[in-house]
Amino acid sequence: MKINLLILLVALSIGSVTESFAQQNIQTRNRIGLYGGLTQFDIKTDNFITTSGQGWIGGLSASVDLPHKLYNVSYTIQLSENTLGINAKPTLASPSEEIDFTMITAQVAFLVHVKIIQDYLTIDIGPMIQYTGDLEVKNNSQKNYIIENYSRVTAKDLYKISPFNVNGAVGVSAGFKSFKLRGQYIYGFTNILNQLNDENFVGETNTSKFKGNQSMFALTALIKF
């Protein structure tokens, strides 16, 4: 249901932009694109010891080409599954080790594509709204591992991260009108760990607030129709 709402938002948004330019009697061209690629994901935080992990991403774009402007605009909706390593240990007396987590995200973005070399090379920048799934332990046998820097917080306790976040995206696209390669960096402006602050970890001696910001790099190939 949440993904359907995101798709509806993109459709309504691109329709409103197209109508706005049409009312100005300016020639525009709408294009639909499909894209997919790989991600490198991390959470920048002082609470945990993390290691970035790889994942995949795929999505749909709806763009408005503006030949009379120095930029084009587009709306994108994308899904990704990301991995992340966090240090934890079986017991307080054990040495720590890296355990893997997975997280699924759904993102909607409005991007402005500044033309450096016409449509062949652009700088892409814009805001993004993200729905974030649970942060899940990949190996069930490690769910009760104690997170490094804590005495009562376990790996399974980290699932309840903040579901809605606001990001900023910046990147570069290069290629032709029907095919482009895009490198994009996505940074989370909101605290993705904030919901953990509502939890009561009885007996925990580390009282520092949970705070972290998403950091993701995506390399994708885009085909436009």
Rank of each mutant, 00 (worst) to 15 (best):
A88Q: 09
V112W: 04
K180W: 07
K89Q: 14
K211F: 05
V108R: 00
G212P: 08
F176R: 00
S61N: 06
T102R: 05
V17M: 03
T122L: 09
Q130T: 13
P163I: 02
V172D: 04
L9R: 01
Y150S: 04
A62G: 04
F21M: 04
N165V: 09
G85I: 07
S208E: 14
I186Q: 07
K177D: 14
N165L: 11
G59H: 02
A218P: 01
Y71D: 03
S80D: 14
Y35E: 02
N82A: 07
I57G: 03
Q40I: 14
F41H: 10
N194A: 15
K211W: 04
S215G: 15
G171W: 01
N47G: 08
T39W: 07
L12C: 13
K89P: 08
Q24M: 09
G53F: 11
Q107E: 15
A221T: 03
T105A: 11
Y131R: 06
K209I: 05
F21D: 01
P127N: 04
K89A: 15
I104V: 13
K115Y: 07
V108T: 05
L181F: 13
I161P: 04
H113W: 02
V108K: 00
H113V: 01
Y159W: 10
V137G: 07
F189A: 07
F101S: 05
S20W: 10
A169H: 00
I43L: 11
A93L: 11
L121H: 05
G37P: 01
G171P: 04
I117H: 09
K115I: 05
T39C: 05
V64I: 13
Y150F: 15
G59V: 02
T51V: 11
T39E: 06
L6Y: 14
A62K: 05
N165F: 08
E204M: 04
V17Q: 01
E136W: 01
P67N: 08
Y145K: 12
M216R: 13
S208Y: 12
T50Q: 10
Q78R: 06
P95S: 14
T28H: 11
Q214I: 14
G85Y: 10
D42K: 13
M128A: 08
F164D: 03
A88S: 13
G133C: 09
Y145C: 10
V17L: 08
E136V: 13
V114P: 02
G183Q: 04
G203R: 03
G58C: 09
I32Q: 06
V114F: 09
Y145S: 12
M1D: 10
N82C: 03
G15C: 08
R152N: 11
P67G: 05
L9M: 10
